[in-house]
Write a protein that binds this DNA or RNA. Sequence first.
RNA 1: GGGCGGUUAGCUCAGUUGGUAGAGCACCUGCCUUACAAGCAGGUGGUCGUAGGUUCGAGCCCUGCACCGCCCACCA
Length: 848
Amino acid sequence: MHERLNPRTDYEKKWQEDWDKTGVYHWQEVACGASFSIDTPPPTVSGSLHVGHVFSYTQTDILARYQRMCGKNVFYPMGYDDNGLPTERRVQQVFGITCNPTLPYDPHWTPKKNPPKGPLQEVSRRNFVEACLLLTQEDERAFEDTWQQLALSIDWRQTYSTINPHCTAMSQRSFLDMLHTGHVYQVEAPTMWDVDFKTAVAQAELEDRVMPGAYHHIRFELQDGGDLVIVTTRPELLPACIAVVAHPDDTRYTHLFGRYAISPIFGATIPIIASSHADPEKGSGILMVCTFGDQADVAWWKFSDLPAKQVLGLNGRFMPVVFGQDPFGSRDCARAQESYDMLVGLKVAAARTTMGTLLGEALIKPPEPIEHPVKFYEKGDSPIEFMTTRQWFVRLLDKKQALLNQGQLIQWHPDFMKSRYTNWVEGLNQDWCISRQRYFGIPFPLWYPLDGGGNPDYDHPIFATPDQLPLDPQSTAPVGFDESMRGKPNGFMGDPDVMDTWATSSLTPQLMSHWGQDKARHNQLFPMDIRPQSHEIIRTWAFYTIAKSWIHHKDIPWGHVLISGWVLDPDRKKMSKSKGNVVTPQALLDHYSADAIRYWAGRARLGVDTSYDESVFQIGKKLTTKLLNAAKFVKMQLENLSSVSLDTLPVHLEPMDALWIAQLQQVVELATKALDQFEYATALETIEKAFWTFCDHYLELIKGRAYQETGAKQRSALVSLEWSLGIFLRLFAPFLPYVTEEIWSWRWAPIHPSIHKAPWPIYPKDVAINASLWDAVLIILAEVRGAKTRAQKSMKHPVKALTITCPHAIAEGLRFLEDDLKRAGSIGSIGYTEIAHPAVTVEVILDD
RNA sequence: GGGCGGUUAGCUCAGUUGGUAGAGCACCUGCCUUACAAGCAGGUGGUCGUAGGUUCGAGCCCUGCACCGCCCACCA
């Protein structure tokens, strides 16, 4: 009997193409009136999208569609974050190339997939970037296909990738602007360093991992007799020990301050110094300071006059040093050198083992195994080390209060997520290191002059002029120089570093507003309205964006931050590619339809993690089918209605219709208010509930009148049906764009070609709602149906008599609704017992 | 160690300013009813993590605790 409707094959493709063709989602650059701009997260392009993307992007799209229907000029772009390490790794693998930034650009070279095995081919940075672009563009096309199918209402003309010339120029402009206003500086100092990627990293990219370690109790002899025992988890840094410190109030050690200890094996004379950062409760209360074991060592060293003893190389291996020379001075150079040479070339973990052996009796007891948190670069495999290198920093510590204030000016959804931001800013302890010793990224727009000996003069960099942007200093010469002077004495060299990927991502609002390029556009779009993102990057993306916006504009970047939850697998862990068996969005879209997937995303509230549960897709699919069937029924009835109208109600309505219409008007009000607060899930819940009430109760109440009656009674039913469907479709449109557009086209396309540009339904200021009467109707229906079910009779089984016990006012109302009630319940007669109590009870007597 | 969430039916989750515990899924029963059996009707099922407090009244407000998760922390 029933038609089979497969959402995807029947209409999804059709509407996707139609929207693309008609440009229904286009932003109007010259439009006046209210606008709504979205700082879309640019997904990392390295592999494929996962369900988490579908989840959060759909939530943003729901809000975009709502605002568009409210008449806003919606700016909804898409970006791709394609620079950074993940892409670098893939390009290396796919094309068999590696970057040598000192090589010149080769315009004739083209990347080839499936390279022969063997050593990686070295190419210039510009060639490397071209290879990265080639690869990421393929991925971006695949991303766009999925986004299109999911029906994200993006203006695809507003698309960017973070490595493209536009974003390169913008990032470099940002750098130069910060330079000229004194917000960036360069310094050679101990910096957090990843030894595998051989690059500096920033505080925001750190994570703690609990790792096994061991307390080593090491005895130091004192220069003038006696000894002391320090406890350390990093015995391998003993040759880099520069001091022994204890708390000034620690009476166990106060007599030692000002005296000297002799380091075991290396025989160095080590000052014993009072320092309040030593905690008497920890270890033996006295500890060694090494260059550099941790951040505390760095901080302490900076305030001391002691020289650094650098033993770890940039590759994380012990590098050769010569004892007997300052600062490695030793009483027994030969023994020190002999022992140290056993460490040279080793990584930290191996050196720790070797040192354990070397220490021998200086270890007063076997190492005591512990587990402790260790800092890692979030993408790295080895613990962070502190290396003295030259890096560029953005000043943040001097702006903490201002940035806290900016965070207060932004509305966070949910509000408690603001505390994540506040906590992070309060805990900031370093400026932002933005230079990375990598290749695929935005180069710094600067060069260093070379002296007569060919050595760079780092203190007098040559900066690019604004008209040179975008540029790669490895391929472009500074003003006043010629390419032939590159690398030559008295010539120049380009800065070999690239910027932290967040240095670009933190400019997404400006990238889209064309800051510094198009004043009118910038003023129209900046600050933006909403920034959707997930909570784990509040400390990076949100924070850096707020910081840059403050630095460049003394303004907030957007009015609202919307924090999406995570999709959790049934073990309550975040779903991720690395965990395997992840369902691809494409498979889900094909199996359940885009509308069903969107329904799942729309049910989840902002900031709340959601379990991955496919039964919810099933519910979404059921809802779209129900919509189609209900609409099909309404359409059939409306063949008796000559003219098409939207939102027009006649003066005369049958009482049942007026009663229902007021109910639905209230739903419009609730849904609208929820969506204005970005509470799309609340709106969906309200709309959905009303829709099932419409189908199960209202339709059943009036269907008989619609096809049995004629004249005014029928017409009232038909108009109410048309009006209700017009409302429901638009309420659902942000959530279920395909099925609503399909049904819309059956009737209203001549008035508004696309539902997605149709006006959002309005509601009267004071809805004349009679909730208690409507509730009474529902109670009567339920009682009649319940009686039939309990008697195991069909729903059309006749009711001989119905007695309703209710207050006078309700009875008065019900008398006007009797015709519809009788027809819907096959009820013979209805009697009333009026009472003072507000409760409504019903007695049902069935026919035999 | 600090901060922020969460704990409600077997599962996934709602629960507006305190006023008699809700939905969907699952399960059970019945019903072919002129949109829909991919449907409809009805039903079983919860001392709302825990111990106190405030209140006439607490899932909701206050305090302590437990467990789960996230974020952060100079981690000797």
